[in-house]
Simulated scan of single mutants.
Amino acid sequence: MKFDLEAAQPNIHVREQVGVHTHPPDENEIARSEFTQRLREEVSTNPGLPPKRVFEAQVATEHRRIRRQARPSADPVITCFTAQGQYVPENTDLNCNCSASDLGHPKGRLRVYRGNNEQISGSYGEIRVAFSEANVSRDDDGTVFRCVVEWATTDSPRETSFTLHVAYAAEIKQFTANKQHQNLTINENSSITLTCTALGRPTPGMIISKDGNSLQQVPKGDHVTEIQTSNLTYRRSQATCDLTGDYVCEVDNDLGRQSSNHLTVLVNFPDVRSFTFRVNDSDTNITGNIKLSATCFTTDTDYDVTCSVIVSDVASKEAEGLYTFSAANAFGQEHFQFKVIVNGVDTF
Rank of each mutant, 00 (worst) to 15 (best):
Pro51Arg: 05
Pro51Thr: 11
Lys52His: 13
Arg53Phe: 12
Glu56Asn: 09
Gln58Ala: 05
Gln58Pro: 00
Val59His: 02
Ala60Asn: 12
Glu62Cys: 07
His63Ile: 15
His63Cys: 13
Arg64Gln: 14
Arg65Pro: 00
Gln69Ser: 15
Pro72Val: 02
Ser73Cys: 07
Ala74Met: 11
Ala74His: 10
Pro76His: 01
Ile78Arg: 00
Cys80Lys: 02
Thr82Trp: 03
Gln86Arg: 13
Gln86Glu: 15
Val88His: 00
Pro89His: 03
Leu94Met: 10
Leu94Gln: 03
Asn95Ser: 14
Asn95Tyr: 07
Asn97Ile: 08
Ala100Tyr: 03
Ala100Val: 13
Ser101Met: 11
Gly104Met: 03
Gly104Asp: 04
Gly104Ser: 07
Val112Ala: 02
Tyr113His: 05
Asn117Ile: 12
Gln119Ile: 03
Gln119Ser: 08
Ile120Val: 14
Gly122His: 01
Ser123Lys: 15
Tyr124Ile: 07
Tyr124Arg: 09
Gly125Lys: 11
Arg128Asp: 13
Ala130Asp: 14
Ala130Leu: 12
Phe131Ile: 08
Glu133Ile: 13
Asp140Ala: 12
Thr143Ile: 04
Thr143Val: 04
Thr143Gln: 01
Val144Pro: 00
Val144Tyr: 00
Phe145His: 00
Val148Glu: 02
Val148Lys: 01
Ala152Lys: 04
Ala152Ile: 08
Thr153Asn: 07
Thr153Ile: 06
Thr154Phe: 00
Ser156Cys: 05
Arg158Met: 06
Thr160Gly: 05
Ser161Ala: 12
Ser161His: 03
Thr163His: 01
Thr163Ser: 06
Thr163Trp: 00
Thr163Asp: 03
Leu164Thr: 02
His165Thr: 08
Val166Cys: 02
Ala167Thr: 07
Tyr168Ala: 06
Ala169Arg: 08
Glu171Lys: 11
Ile172Lys: 02
Gln174Leu: 08
Lys179Trp: 11
Gln180Glu: 13
His181Trp: 13
Thr185Cys: 05
Thr185Glu: 08
Ile186Phe: 03
Asn187Lys: 09
Asn187Gln: 11
